[in-house]
């Protein structure tokens, strides 16, 4: 285990950012800290980096107690959401910074910097200032700068948050490939569940200063520990007392079993390759079902058709808790 966090708590005035958090982050993997804004995930990352001090608890990095170590002694690479580029230095000098601080020989620095610039595809921009780069390029430079010192762990705080959707997606794939290449223990913070599911080996879901669940993307998606994780990781709808993913509902025009719930189609919406069917059950519950286009055509549904719903056997469900304010049902459903 590479990073051990034990009983870490942190308050900002009256606000509890982290409440007795204990988690182990595995070596050599790409781990996502996922959760809504203000949930404490960035605070945890900054505590690992030493940029913030925990009020209680301990942090251990690769077997070394880092709780009281200042950031410069932790050998941690940190990448900020807004790049934190050294504005008065060229790209090359930005990347070389950590090595110069470590007083490495000049030719060794030059060699390592060239190698890293190549890795992040910025060779031809070596002599530019950060202001002359695009957001994506700046973030790649920041990554190269953090990697230059051969960090024990690489920490990224919402690294793609400030970039536009297309660049974000490119950089996401690129980060995954880069991680496979350099194999450094990497932890990144994100509030985007799609990003976490796509990139990470391991996801730690953090909400309200507490850890909700730790697991692989498949674990979390297929076996959510509670309704918060269920809601946060993907679209959900409610049938009876169960939270279920809309694509895990079966729909038919004739009843197929004793537990079927009958209802009427109230609306049909086409969203890209999916068809979304709004069904109002006999008890007045609004349920959402998503179908592929072919399934939809085979059923021949129309507004007003009476249908029967059931949960596909074996699909993940959780008991429905109260709907949290920050993840309204509609938003969670349409974001898929």
């Amino acid at each position: 285990m590479s990073i051990e966090i034990a009983g870490v708590g942190k308050r900002f005035g009256d606000f509890v950012a982290l409440d007795n958090v204990t988690v182990s982050i595995p070596s050599g993997r790409l781990t996502a800290l996922l959760g809504p804004s203000g949930g404490g995930k960035s605070t945890l990352l900054r505590i690992i980096a030493g940029l913030e001090r925990a009020d209680t608890g301990r942090v251990e990095i690769e077997g070394i107690d880092a709780t009281d170590l200042p950031p410069q002694k932790r050998n941690v690479g940190f990448v900020f959401q807004h790049y934190a580029a050294f504005k008065h230095m060229s790209v090359r000098r930005n990347v070389a910074f950590g090595l110069q601080i470590r007083k490495r020989p000049k030719d060794e620095i030059a060699e390592r910097v060239d190698e890293l610039l190549k890795l992040v595809h910025l060779q031809q921009f070596a002599d530019r200032l950060p202001a002359q780069l695009s957001g994506g390029q700046r973030q790649r430079m920041a990554l190269a700068r953090a990697l230059a010192i051969k960090p024990t762990v690489l920490l990224l705080d919402e690294p793609f948050g400030a970039l536009d959707a297309k660049v974000r997606k490119e950089l996401r794939d690129w980060l995954r490939r880069l991680h496979d290449e350099v194999e450094v223990t990497t932890v990144f913070v994100t509030h985007d569940q799609e990003e976490a599911l796509e990139v990470a080996d391991e996801i730690v879901v953090i909400n309200d200063g507490r850890i909700e669940q730790i697991g692989s993307p498949d674990d979390l998606y297929d076996r959510p520990a509670n309704d918060f994780v269920m809601r946060f990781l993907g679209p959900v709808t409610q049938l009876g007392d169960h939270l279920v993913r809309p694509h895990d509902l079966q729909i038919s025009t004739t009843p197929a079993g004793p537990d079927d719930v009958a209802g009427q189609v109230s609306r049909i919406t086409r969203i890209g390759f999916e068809i979304r069917i709004d069904v109002t059950t006999a008890t007045g519950q609004a349920v959402i079902v998503t179908l592929t286009r072919n399934e939809f055509l085979a059923l021949g549904l129309d507004v007003g058709t009476t249908v029967h719903l059931r949960i596909t056997p074996g699909s993940p469900t959780t008991p429905a808790g109260p709907v949290p304010a920050e993840v309204p049902l509609e938003v969670a459903t349409s974001s898929h």
Binding site: P71, Q72, V76, H82, F86, F97, R145, A146
Partner: peptide, 25 residues
């Protein structure tokens, strides 16, 4: 503060951070 924090995480001590990052900016 971010540039200074970045410098610290890259291994610079308080004086190095001041001289190389804060002072030029």
């Amino acid at each position: 503060e971010e540039q200074e924090q970045a410098a610290r995480s890259l291994g610079a001590n308080a004086w190095q951070t001041f001289r190389r990052i804060t002072l030029p900016s």
